[in-house]
Design a protein around this nucleic acid. Sequence first.
DNA 1: GCTAGGAGCTGAAAGGTTTCAAGAGGTGTG
DNA 2: CACACCTCTTGAAACCTTTCAGCTCCTAGC
Lengths: 379, 379
Amino acid sequence: MPPDTTANTPGPARSSADGMSTPVHSDGSSAGGGRRRRAAKRHAAGVKAVAAAAGVSLGTVSNVLNRPEVVSPLTRAKVEAAMASLGFVRNESARQLRAGSSRILAYLMLDAGNPFFTDVAKGVEDAAREAGLSVFLCNSNEDVDREADYLDLLEQQRVQGILITPIDQNSSRLRKLPSRGTPVVVVDRAIDDEEHCSVAVNDVLGGELAIAHLLELGHERIAYVGGPNTIGQVIDRRDGARRALQTAGRPAENLIELTTGALTVAEGRGAGQRLAGLPADRRPTAAFCANDLLALGLLQQCVSLGLRVPEDLAIVGYDDIEFAAAAAVPLTSVRQPRQLLGRTAAELLLDESSNPDHEHQRVIFTPELVVRTSTRGTG
Amino acid sequence: MPPDTTANTPGPARSSADGMSTPVHSDGSSAGGGRRRRAAKRHAAGVKAVAAAAGVSLGTVSNVLNRPEVVSPLTRAKVEAAMASLGFVRNESARQLRAGSSRILAYLMLDAGNPFFTDVAKGVEDAAREAGLSVFLCNSNEDVDREADYLDLLEQQRVQGILITPIDQNSSRLRKLPSRGTPVVVVDRAIDDEEHCSVAVNDVLGGELAIAHLLELGHERIAYVGGPNTIGQVIDRRDGARRALQTAGRPAENLIELTTGALTVAEGRGAGQRLAGLPADRRPTAAFCANDLLALGLLQQCVSLGLRVPEDLAIVGYDDIEFAAAAAVPLTSVRQPRQLLGRTAAELLLDESSNPDHEHQRVIFTPELVVRTSTRGTG
DNA sequence: GCTAGGAGCTGAAAGGTTTCAAGAGGTGTG
DNA sequence: CACACCTCTTGAAACCTTTCAGCTCCTAGC
């Protein structure tokens, strides 16, 4: 680190960091041969250097940065010239330490590989940008440890606030954050909690819509594909499914549950494998999947194993991601207002951190069934 | 902001932050009524308070945090108890300011909505985690301004390094970063540049593979769907396509170019509309799309307009994202080692920031054609 | 009993920025 | 000409942590 103190480490016995000692290289095709270039110098000029170069005081440089209108045009020009020529880059750590506020907002996603969440993220970012903030995205990838790590990190970073689609919404870590100064908004989960706002879609209703639709089409043996059962969305959608059965006078136990390890296409394929393996007279005639990723995997696997969709198996997904409509058999799905979800969550967070009269809200949107070929057939 | 200084703003004319003055609320279904709760207190306890509470000095608290092994078990326990009871959260800004190093790495993505990039991000994150670092994801969304904003922000944050799939790889901003102390690795673009490593896939070759395949199937009127032409990937894949035509003895001008405004499903649909509108005798019999998103949109639109795929129109995509195989007509696509791309990039970055003997590399992987129904038919 | 050495702890300095009370210089008024 | 007033600028203090030289206390060795 100290570039001068250590001077030149003598001899050839340089213990380089292991790991990358033998860098990967081209793969057979045109490689571009190693190039020489040494470790770049660390950031140099600070406000002090700029002040000296421009012949003004530190305070003035800071004013140029933060309150340009109070600085005379001439002085400002001098300072800006000095900044440019020195390649000044403001040190955000120092700024934040002193000023006490961050211009960053984080969205901790459940699964960045699920287009549903990236659409939510888009809404978040639009709202944040309008307010002059930036968004960092983090991906917990349905892993509790990663979620915890990111929460710690973000709290330590003192971000303006955290938007999160949690794996476990009862995490004590989550509940502690707001009282320590980091506002939290829970996205895609309705939580009745004193500590934060939440924005969600009525997942129980979504489940009901899906099953009611299938019952209406005459299906009696219906499967629910979803998991793990620690995830709120999975539970609510299943409960909605059960409720719809009961409402229609069928016992809730009629729902054949196929539990998956995650909400992914690969798990959906696995479920398809299991499902297609059942003898035809016991096999469900319809499946409701906890999200579209599962549904797409299920669909793909079942089709490739020779089942016809929807004739042999009707499929309903959830989220109505863009790929649902473009699937092998266009997918019936439960649509949620994805971007609006994110935007609303971000707006609540901004309100919380800027409005002293903020009251926590629980906003709940209503889902909507989009019927396509995977249940209704090619008619 | 200052909760005490300003005291109570008198009267009812409180100008709250606009925008959220009339918060959205439930949508018809069970709403959870507004809840009361005031702005949370700011983070309180610092190392100083912990030291006092534990009856030790500042340095000792710091040692517990950073070098626990040098602290006696007894003292450590006392300090840890104090931390827990005070709810101490380390201030990362201060840490970073003093220690001078960040434990964060950023990946600035071209389009977070494209599963290709989230897969790359997964590779990045795995590698980073193994090295004990965290990853912040940023989404430029193919918007030059956003890319620039994020680059500035990340530089000011003094992140350990930036991985980026750039919109414009010649951006001077991009080239300046390394010399100012922030290592940069370019992902999914091969750049012959003194300033950074890059990891890419041979896109020209990918284009050649795609077109060679179509020519082999007997297609003569072939379209290239892609854009905007500022994006390197778009250009290279097109150039590969042209080259394949020339190699086969056809003039490169035979390639019918449909330029899109972005690499999205929606733009793909638009291209499908245009393409399907052509009279059958002038319409291409095959289309090669710059990525799978375009291909899926094109496919969806063409099918819904009555074209048969591949009989009336064969389609080749690019990236082989997970959804390509699950599409209406499973998509022939050019596969890239997505996760490996991200992992390799992260490893190069880590090497650059830890190994004083680091040499910039240009790693190039070879793509691979995956043939499915969209070109080969149901055989 | 004395010293050398080590383990554990201390406290001040440093890191780059923002803030703010106070100062400097200039203009207009009576 | 004195004074009030304004616009700009100044420089020190504060933000919270890490670092490191030095200190104390103890033990082992002779």
